[in-house]
Amino acid sequence: LQLFIKTLTGKTFTVEMEPSDTIENLKAKIQDKEGIPPDQQRLIFAGKQLEDGRTLSDYNIQKESTLHLVL
């Protein structure tokens, strides 16, 4: 599923993930694309901070959802 990642600077980029992927996987993918170390990434969806060990489906993140990346 394609997700939109929006940064505080207003930049938006996309990543391609599976619902079974963990937040950790997502942070690694963001590191590949943007060079931001996972330990500096905080991801927010629907007002909640996402925890590394959980999956996208745990948070009911669907295709074309927008996640906010806070550094």
Rank of each mutant, 00 (worst) to 15 (best):
G35A: 07
Q2G: 06
T66D: 04
K6Y: 08
I23R: 00
N60H: 10
I61E: 02
T9N: 10
L43Y: 05
P37L: 08
D21I: 03
Q2P: 11
T22L: 15
I44A: 05
Q2V: 14
K33M: 14
T55F: 07
A46T: 05
D58P: 00
L26I: 10
E34S: 08
K11I: 12
T66S: 05
I30L: 04
L1M: 12
T66G: 03
I61F: 06
N60R: 07
Q62R: 15
Q40Y: 10
L69T: 01
E18D: 13
N60P: 04
Y59W: 02
I44Q: 06
L1A: 06
L71A: 07
R42M: 11
Q62N: 15
T22C: 03
I30R: 00
E64C: 05
Q40L: 15
I61M: 12
K29G: 03
Q49I: 15
K11V: 15
P38S: 13
T14L: 14
N25E: 09
L71W: 08
G35D: 06
D52V: 07
E64H: 15
L56A: 04
I36S: 05
K11A: 14
E16G: 09
K63G: 13
I61C: 01
I30E: 00
N60L: 06
K48I: 13
A46P: 01
L71M: 14
E16A: 13
E24M: 12
I30P: 00
R54L: 07
V70A: 08
Q31W: 09
K11W: 10
M17I: 11
S65V: 10
L26R: 00
K63N: 09
P19Q: 07
L69S: 01
A46K: 13
V15S: 01
Q62W: 10
K33P: 01
N60E: 10
F4D: 03
T55W: 04
S20Y: 15
E34C: 05
Q41D: 01
I23C: 02
D58K: 03
P19A: 11
T66P: 03
P19M: 13
Q62G: 14
Q40P: 02
F45L: 06
D21V: 03
F13C: 02
G53P: 09
D52S: 07
H68L: 14
T14H: 11
T9W: 15
Q49K: 10
L50N: 00
F13W: 07
F45Q: 03
K33N: 06
P38V: 12
K48M: 10
Q31M: 15
G10M: 06
V15P: 00
F4N: 14
T7D: 09
K29E: 06
K11Y: 12
P37A: 14
F13V: 06
E64Q: 14
L8V: 11
I44S: 09
G47M: 04
L43M: 03
G53M: 14
F4E: 09
E16L: 14
L26C: 02
G47F: 04
G53L: 13
I44E: 08
G47W: 05
G35I: 02
G35E: 04
N25D: 11
Q31F: 15
L43T: 01
G35H: 08
Q49M: 09
P19V: 07
A46C: 04
E34P: 01
Q49N: 07
I5K: 00
T22K: 12
F13L: 07
T55Y: 08
D39P: 08
T12Y: 13
T7G: 06
T7L: 11
T12K: 09
T66A: 04
V70P: 01
E64R: 15
L50F: 02
L1I: 14
I30A: 01
R42V: 13
T66M: 15
T66E: 07
I5Q: 00
G35R: 06
L71Y: 14
T9A: 09
E24A: 11
G47E: 07
E64D: 12
P19C: 04
E16I: 13
P37R: 15
I36G: 02
P37K: 07
S20H: 10
V15I: 13
T14Q: 10
L8C: 05
E64M: 09
G10Q: 05
G47Q: 04
H68D: 10
I30Y: 01
L3Q: 00
Q40N: 12
E24C: 05
S65R: 03
Q41P: 01
L50R: 00
K6G: 03
D21H: 12
D58W: 15
E16H: 12
Q31E: 08
D39T: 14
P19F: 08
K6Q: 15
Q62F: 10
A28R: 15
L43E: 00
T55G: 03
V70N: 06
L3A: 02
L3E: 00
V15A: 03
M17T: 12
D52H: 08
L67C: 01
L69R: 00
E51C: 04
K48G: 08
I36A: 04
E51L: 09
L69V: 05
E34A: 13
K6L: 14
T66Y: 08
Q49C: 05
S57G: 12
R42Q: 13
Q62D: 10
L3M: 04
I5L: 03
P19D: 11
Q2S: 12
Q41E: 01
G10R: 07
T22Y: 10
L69F: 03
K48H: 12
L50H: 00
D32S: 10
V15K: 00
K29Q: 12
Q49V: 10
K11E: 12
L1Y: 09
Y59L: 05
Y59H: 03
Q31L: 09
V70S: 14
I30T: 01
N25Q: 08
E18C: 05
S65D: 09
D58S: 09
L43I: 14
H68Q: 14
E16N: 13
L71S: 14
K48S: 06
A46L: 10
E18L: 12
E51G: 04
Y59C: 03
T9D: 12
S20A: 15
S65C: 04
L50W: 02
T14I: 14
G53T: 09
E51V: 11
Q49F: 10
E51S: 08
G47Y: 05
I30W: 00
K29V: 07
P37S: 14
V15R: 00
F4M: 13
T9S: 15
Y59P: 00
E16M: 11
G47L: 03
H68N: 08
E34V: 14
K6R: 15
D58T: 05
D21R: 06
L67I: 12
K6E: 11
Q2R: 08
L56W: 02
S20W: 14
I5P: 00
Q31N: 14
I23T: 05
N25M: 15
P19T: 06
D21K: 05
K33G: 05
K6V: 14
T22D: 03
R42L: 13
V15T: 03
K63Q: 09
E34F: 11
I30K: 00
L67Q: 02
P37F: 06
L69E: 01
Y59A: 03
T12F: 08
Q49T: 09
K33F: 10
K11Q: 12
E16P: 06
D39C: 06
F45T: 02
P37G: 06
P37D: 14
Q41T: 04
F4I: 11
T22G: 04
L26P: 00
R54V: 06
S57E: 10
Q31T: 13
F45P: 00
K29M: 09
R42P: 01
S65I: 05
P38M: 10
D52N: 13
Q2M: 10
P37W: 05
P37N: 09
S20Q: 08
S57Y: 11
H68V: 15
G35N: 10
I36N: 03
F13K: 01
E34G: 08
Q40A: 13
